[in-house]
Amino acid sequence: MDSDRRIGLTSAAIYSAISITASASFFVAATVAGEYTTVARVSGAVWVLLLSFIVTMPLVTSAVKRRMKV
């Protein structure tokens, strides 16, 4: 149980960091471009965050599991 929890927490920290970075990068890029409304920038960042979570969550979780179980 302890091991599962540690895997869960470590994975969550990693995939959250990756997704937030991707989302923030999107937001910064859209802001720097300067031609997008706030709603478009925020909503776009949320959409990127959501998809990034979906992509990174299973990849990171299984990688962490493998690494911690070895």
Partner: peptide, 17 residues
């Protein structure tokens, strides 16, 4: 599935920017 979600991000970013 993962590939599709990755593609969905790329499609979104391409059409957005």
């Amino acid at each position: 599935i993962l590939g599709v979600h990755l593609l969905a991000i790329l499609v979104f970013v391409f059409w957005f920017f």
